[in-house]
């Protein structure tokens, strides 16, 4: 396609940058907020923004899976974890540890290096988004033809994780009256 310039963005570019700013702001608030529950809710905004990015990249199946699993179950699990560890509702002054300046320096250095490298590497690269590339039919074809064995292995792994979580969170040493555990 002719007329592709870095400074003449298309509508998709504009929407992507705007949603990206929202996502990045929510992520920064998620890792800096002193309210633990607020941090979890900012995580919802950040992951939802990433789902919107998947939609903009025409990967709609991945977007809906992201909404269902991340927003639906992972965040609920995190909120349950915060409640069960008796997280304070108000601001908790001990949310950050003492090595916060070091973490800030490391993160800024990594961001600087990565952004410089990636902008230099992909300065002249465009994605063609005119034909969709991630409808559920296409992803299903790929998933159940080429990737069916890893898919089944992953289901076994999920089962193992489920059993592991149950075993870990069971209270030890207290047998019920029947003697069976």
């Amino acid at each position: 396609m002719t007329g592709r310039e870095l400074l003449s963005p298309s509508g998709q570019d504009v929407v992507f940058v705007l949603v990206g700013l929202v996502t990045l702001g929510a992520a920064v608030l998620c890792v800096t907020s002193r309210h633990l529950v607020h941090a979890a809710l900012w995580l919802v905004v950040a992951l939802g923004g990433i789902a919107v990015h998947y939609l903009l990249l025409t990967a709609e199946f991945v977007a809906w899976v992201q909404v269902l699993i991340y927003l639906g179950s992972v965040v609920v699990l995190v909120l349950f974890g915060l409640m069960l560890t008796r997280a304070p509702i108000g601001p908790s002054p001990e949310a950050d540890s003492r090595n916060r300046p070091v973490a800030l320096v490391v993160a800024l250095a990594a961001a600087g290096v990565l952004v410089t490298l990636l902008v230099d590497a992909f300065r002249t690269t465009w994605i063609d988004l005119d034909t969709p590339h991630g409808t559920s039919r296409q992803v299903g074809d790929g998933l159940f033809r080429a990737w069916v064995l890893p898919f089944e292995a992953l289901s076994v792994l999920l089962l193992a994780a489920l059993v592991g979580a149950i075993v870990l969170s069971r209270r030890p040493g207290k047998r019920p009256e029947g003697g069976e555990r």
């Binding site: 950050d96 952004v115 988004l129």
Partner: peptide, 25 residues
């Protein structure tokens, strides 16, 4: 769409998560 946008956003989000992993208690 320019490839730089999603790639740079992913890098920045990754570094945000890196900061969170290192700084949170």
């Amino acid at each position: 769409m320019h490839l730089v946008y999603p790639v740079v956003l992913a890098a920045l989000l990754f570094c945000t998560g890196l900061y969170g992993v290192l700084a949170r208690r």
